[in-house]
């Protein structure tokens, strides 16, 4: 059994013929026949409409869901043989709706994984401040607030800081900038891509915004109803000839007053 995500090993993620269905009478397939390799240091963007299975793919990567067929390998070890606690401590996860702990302050939320990992208080505190600064929140102003005292966008940023806090080699981000206004969003995207280049982490980033995907991805994987229908570098992605790709690219151009 693999016991610890190590920064030294290659942080590769691989899907081998993975299918997943809900365990009920309907046995509805949510992910079907997904094979995918995410090499060390890549920023893979999972693009797809609502309900296409993006979040499900992320949960298959950190062992919160196990495939009903095929296997998911993290650092060349199947998620079903990983100790789930160790696996998840090494994977930062930004939850779609931030999922902050309402009874913890911002500082306690961000410092959770470091404290679970046994960091001492002063090291955790320093790390919390650093992470808040990274996501553009002033620690003096925000560290002692509770999540209910934050705006939706601020909550999301705390969610990002929390995922980064223990410096995990793998980062899963489920629409981390979804609740932000376009201006702040563009700002954070720019800072984030600079950060990504500096950190050298393996990142899987979920969005349904093609613009965001083009900006951040080293590769874009397009999902439709639980299947991969396209996979390409951003430059090539726009040229692909697939109806779902066209559906997304046509959403890029805006004709003012077209529906008026």
């Amino acid at each position: 059994m693999n016991t610890k995500i190590s920064a030294a090993a290659t942080n590769r993620i691989e899907f081998r013929g993975v299918s997943f269905h809900i365990n009920d009478i309907l046995k509805r397939l949510i992910v079907s026949g997904v094979s995918l390799e995410i090499p060390h240091g890549e920023t893979l963007v999972l693009l797809g409409r609502s309900g296409s299975g993006k979040t499900t793919l992320l949960k298959l990567m950190n062992g919160m869901l196990l495939p009903t067929k095929g296997e998911v390998l993290v650092q060349d070890c199947s998620t079903s043989s990983w100790d789930p606690i160790r696996l998840r401590r090494g994977i930062g996860y930004v939850i779609q709706d931030a999922g902050l702990f309402p009874h913890f302050t911002v500082a306690e939320n961000v410092g959770l994984v470091p404290s679970l990992e046994g960091w001492d208080a002063s090291r955790t505190a320093a790390r919390v401040e650093e992470m808040l600064h990274l996501v553009g929140l002033d620690a003096r102003e925000f560290a002692h607030r509770h999540p209910r005292e934050l705006s939706g966008g601020q909550r999301q940023r705390v969610g990002v800081a929390r995922a980064l806090a223990a410096d995990p080699p793998i980062l899963l981000m489920d629409e981390p900038f979804g609740a932000l206004d376009p201006v702040t969003r563009a700002e954070l995207q720019r800072e984030f891509s600079a950060l990504v280049r500096r950190l050298g982490k393996t990142i899987v980033f979920v969005t349904h915004d093609l613009r965001e995907a083009l900006l951040l991805a080293s590769r874009i994987v397009l999902l439709e109803a639980g299947r991969i229908v396209a996979s390409a570098a951003p430059q090539e992605f726009l040229r692909l000839d697939h109806p779902e790709v066209r559906a997304f690219t046509s959403s890029l151009t805006v004709t003012p007053g077209a529906f008026a």
């Binding site: 950190n62 919160m64 789930p84 606690i85 160790r86 696996l87 998840r88 401590r89 994977i91 996860y93 939850i95 779609q96 709706d97 931030a98 999922g99 902050l100 702990f101 309402p102 959770l112 994984v113 679970l116 929390r162």
Partner: peptide
């Protein structure tokens, strides 16, 4: 809130934690 429990699980907290 299930999102909170999901977050706890995703952070690698044990059942007891």
């Amino acid at each position: 809130d299930p999102a909170v429990l999901e977050a706890a699980e995703a952070m690698g907290m044990t059942r007891a934690q």
